[in-house]
């Protein structure tokens, strides 16, 4: 069921019609907008299909292939794995994003991924605000066999980050992953708190955090652009993770984000289980967006 039914059906219906004219292209553009690509990307891709139509006869299948190709072209340069630097002990990953995007869950999955790769991991419960956020991450630390550090709810998040770094260093851990409370990017006070966490980490290691991951929910619309902008400013976002791609949303906004910010996309979340994290693959993503089957590949990383 992992297909974008609307887009698939839409394109097929569109290109089985007799006439292929400007109106057909307008409708294709609409279908792309309907996948959250945004106007600019939708226009560009539609233009590409328009050009191809002069060269050859197009049916629904081949239009989808062209769209997928165009999307993959945008995304391929940003499909970059996340390899925490081995020289830093600990390497620090800070995880940020708006409320409910999937930060804490992604941290659990990341811990599992890197533990499987042989790393010693500390998880820090930097969400000292939300009810039971600490308990939630504690469960994930347990699942992923990671060391866990927390303070009481209401404690200063930067102070927790400070202690967590000290602990990770004392434990000679390879990787410290810090959870943060969800926050909307238009809240200056909360964004400043994030800045403070970064400042504290830099006291230990000027390079820290070595990665600052923004977690984006696949259902998000144009607001994601503002998220990338604002979190980029205060938390120096170095890469993205897109979650909830197992639902009906195809995450088309990622295309607009990639065009505008060219930030690496490291992983996608495809479920709530500890193993439901996959490396980001531009082709798979693009094909899923237009409802083409995925080309089977071997994932070893």
């Amino acid at each position: 069921a992992k297909t974008s039914d609307q887009l698939t059906r839409g394109i097929t219906d569109l290109f089985t019609k007799e006439k292929f004219d400007a109106a057909t292209l307008d409708e294709l553009e609409d279908l792309l907008i309907q996948s959250d690509l945004g106007l600019a990307a939708a226009e560009r891709i539609t233009a590409a299909v328009g050009r191809a139509r002069h060269a050859r006869q197009l049916d629904g299948e081949s239009v989808r292939a062209i769209v997928a190709q165009e999307v993959a072209k945008t995304l391929a340069p940003v499909a970059i794995p996340l390899d925490p630097p081995e020289s830093a002990r600990p390497a620090v990953i800070l995880v940020v994003g708006v409320n409910g995007s999937g930060k804490t869950t992604t941290i659990g999955k990341l811990a599992e991924t890197y533990r499987t790769a042989g790393m010693k991991i500390v998880l820090a419960a930097g969400d000292t605000f939300r009810a039971a956020a600490v308990e939630q991450l504690a469960v994930w630390a347990e699942r992923a066999g990671a060391i866990f550090i927390s303070k009481e709810t209401g404690a200063d998040a930067a102070a927790l980050a400070y202690e967590a770094y000290a602990k990770a260093r004392a434990e000679n851990a390879d990787l410290l992953i810090i959870d943060t409370a969800g926050r909307l990017q238009n809240k200056a006070g909360l964004m400043a708190e994030l800045e403070k966490i970064v400042r504290v980490l830099k006291k230990f290691d000027a390079e820290a955090p070595h990665a600052s991951l923004l977690v984006l929910d696949a259902t998000t619309g144009q607001n994601a652009l503002g998220q990338v902008e604002a979190f980029g400013k205060v938390a120096g976002v170095t890469g993205l993770v897109m979650t909830k791609l197992d639902g009906t949303a195809r995450g088309g906004i990622l295309v607009a984000v990639a065009e505008k910010y060219r930030l690496p996309v490291h992983f996608i979340g495809v479920g709530e289980g500890v193993d439901d994290l996959e490396p980001f693959d531009a082709d798979d993503f693009a094909r899923a967006l237009v409802g083409l089957p995925r080309v089977e590949k071997d994932y070893s990383f």
Binding site: Q6, D36, D217, T248
Partner: peptide, 15 residues
């Protein structure tokens, strides 16, 4: 439902 939702809103609401 989340006010930040994009075009998926209709699919989800309908379902």
């Amino acid at each position: 439902a989340d006010a930040l939702t994009g075009q998926d809103a209709v699919t989800t609401a309908r379902a």
